[in-house]
């Protein structure tokens, strides 16, 4: 691809994204950065998990979860089992009744609308990382 062609292609892509983002900016959208985790939850008979970035980043820097605690930065990339959470892994590293309320508060994590597919949500997203 020549430099000019590549740039053209990028511009067209930018145009498409900006257009989609502008149309998408409806108030009914989920909060920016919300992640639905639903590889197993619904199959296991509970509501999908909703993880709010906005809530957690007020309290923790990204590096706490994505470096210290080892959450991979890609929606769906972390294979979380409920047993892990109870064992103090993933969400359970904090949701253990000490740093935050514990795993017995099922509904607070399993609060998603049934049928919601996993992935990153929110008005201005690029359909990039969360796209499978």
């Amino acid at each position: 691809m020549t430099g000019a062609a590549a740039r053209w292609r990028a511009l067209v892509a930018v145009a498409a994204v900006v257009a989609v983002a502008a149309i998408d900016a409806t108030p009914a959208a989920a909060e920016y950065g919300d992640v639905v985790i639903n590889r197993r939850a619904e199959r296991g008979g509970v509501r999908p998990v909703v993880f709010p970035h906005w809530f957690h980043r007020i309290r923790f820097r990204c590096k706490v979860c994505h470096s210290e605690l080892g959450f991979r930065m890609r929606a769906g990339a972390n294979d979380v089992l409920m047993a892990d959470v109870i064992d103090g892994k993933f969400c359970g590293m904090c949701h253990n009744g000490q740093t935050a309320w514990g795993a017995e508060q099922c509904d607070l994590c399993h609060s998603g609308k049934p049928g919601t597919p996993p992935g990153i949500q929110g008005g201005n997203e690029t359909r990039g990382p969360g796209r499978w």
């Binding site: 989920a30 919300d34 909703v50 509904d107 607070l108 399993h110 609060s111 609308k113």
Partner: peptide, 10 residues
Amino acid sequence: DGLHDPASPA
């Protein structure tokens, strides 16, 4: 928000 279950007690 289209994401949370309006029926959830949470």
